[in-house]
Computed example of a mutant assay.
Amino acid sequence: MNLEKGKTIFDKIKMPYDTLRKKENPIKPIVNYYKSKLKAGEELWWMDSENGNTASNIVIRIWNNLSQSEKQDIKNRSMIYFPELFGNRSDKFNRIAVWLATRQSIVSPNIRDLFTAGGKVDIIFSTKTYERVPRIF
């Protein structure tokens, strides 16, 4: 590759190739560089394997190709992990979208619909009826 001086990854991490290739963990300086460039709410996805920050699979899956039981399991966990889903903020689906891609290796082009489609239903719990609650509950 013909990159200008200062534009290679070796220039950016301030380490020559030969030094990098001899390191026990040569990817770490690169990961650290890209971590330093992240904005709030951004993650490195599968590159960042420290501290349990790994996707479940390097293969990306599409939501519609998951089994019904896997979809339900992910929706259940999402409601626990991301209580903002129950709020009114316009950005309430942002964190779950990142989590699905980075931790579950799943892309959902219509993530909002997973939690808002289906209309309203009455739910009976014990002797109490909750009327017109979102069907996702």
Rank of each mutant, 00 (worst) to 15 (best):
M1W: 15
M1T: 12
N2V: 03
N2I: 00
E4M: 07
F10N: 02
K12S: 02
K12D: 02
I13F: 13
K14R: 09
K14W: 00
M15G: 02
P16T: 08
T19W: 02
T19F: 01
L20N: 08
L20H: 00
K22A: 04
K23G: 01
N25C: 01
P29I: 14
V31T: 06
N32H: 07
N32V: 15
K35P: 01
K37S: 15
L38E: 03
A40F: 07
G41F: 11
E42G: 01
L44P: 00
W46Y: 14
M47L: 15
N51H: 05
G52K: 05
G52T: 04
T54Y: 08
A55T: 15
S56E: 07
S56D: 05
I58K: 06
V59Y: 02
R61E: 11
W63T: 05
L66C: 02
L66G: 00
Q68T: 01
Q72S: 07
D73N: 15
I74A: 00
K75R: 04
S78N: 05
S78K: 12
I80G: 02
I80Y: 09
Y81K: 15
F82E: 04
F82V: 00
P83D: 14
E84G: 02
G87M: 09
N88C: 14
N88H: 12
D91I: 03
F93Y: 14
N94Q: 14
R95F: 07
V98L: 01
W99G: 03
R103D: 13
S105G: 09
V107W: 12
S108T: 06
S108I: 06
N110M: 07
N110Y: 15
R112D: 12
L114P: 11
T116S: 06
K120Y: 13
V121R: 10
V121H: 10
D122E: 09
K128R: 05
Y130A: 15
Y130V: 10
R132H: 12
R132T: 08
R135F: 13
F137L: 14
